[in-house]
């Protein structure tokens, strides 16, 4: 029962969702629309489950002053402050002018925005270092990789486009690399990925793939 019912639910829900594509009747759409709503609510629930899990993992460490308890306290306190401000500001939380007072919007603008943007900007520095240390033309494949990368980098910016005589040809070669070989390779990856996703989807719906249901 512990596994039979979930497998049955997987089959029924999966078949109904696949049918949506083939049966464009409004009654059938109403059924799948309702199921999509439930799915959306459950996906949101999964996020909250992650939040509960996070607190379950970190709170005991903070209480018992375990390893890195200070950082974990920062995480939990910032989480609590953001949640408090978010619920306190309610529907007005995104209203213009809210950033002028200590609010949810203020936290977003002055705490989350710089942190998030800089976290991703860090990669610019690492990619420079990686390019310098590891990107070597050791064989034909690596040389081609290097040439394509340099061409795309150079011809995509004004300094490359503007080179007298060859600049416009470099742009054409860059566009050609993107439109032809890149297109061919991506399509091959797409076709492979699509076939993989279709077979995995079928395995899940038919109950052959059960890893999401966990062990006995």
């Amino acid at each position: 029962m512990k596994r039979t019912l979930p497998i049955l639910i997987t089959f029924v829900v999966g078949v109904i969702m696949v049918g949506e594509f083939f049966i464009p009747h409004w009654r059938y759409r109403a059924l799948t629309g309702e199921m999509l709503e439930w799915g959306i609510i459950l996906a949101a629930g999964a996020f909250i489950l992650g939040l509960i899990n996070l607190v379950q993992v970190h709170l005991p460490t903070v209480v018992q002053r375990g390893t890195d308890w200070g950082y974990k306290a920062v995480l939990l306190v910032s989480l609590a402050v953001t949640l408090t401000m978010g619920f306190a500001n309610g529907k007005e939380r995104l209203a213009s002018g809210m950033e002028a007072t200590f609010s949810y919007k203020w936290i977003f603008d002055f705490v989350y925005t710089p942190l998030s943007a800089t976290m991703f900007a860090l990669l610019a520095f690492y990619i420079a270092s990686a390019g310098f240390r590891a990107f070597r033309a050791r064989n034909a494949e690596a040389t081609l990789l290097l040439v394509a990368a340099a061409l795309v980098m150079f011809a995509s910016v004004p300094i490359g486009e503007g080179v007298p005589v060859i600049g416009e040809y470099l742009v054409v070669l860059k566009d050609w690399t993107l439109d032809v070989p890149n297109n061919a390779a991506r399509r091959a990856i797409f076709i492979g990925a699509a076939l993989g996703a279709i077979s995995t989807g079928l395995r899940v719906i038919l109950g052959l793939e059960r890893s999401h249901l966990g062990g006995e």
Binding site: A124, I127, A128, G131, F132, R133, F135, R136, L146, A149, A150, M153, F154, S156, V157, P158, I159, G160
Partner: peptide, 14 residues
């Protein structure tokens, strides 16, 4: 432009 040029120079020098 300058950022890309810097990376290309690094690649060439490397």
């Amino acid at each position: 432009s300058i950022g890309h040029l810097y990376i290309i120079i690094l690649l060439l020098l490397g």
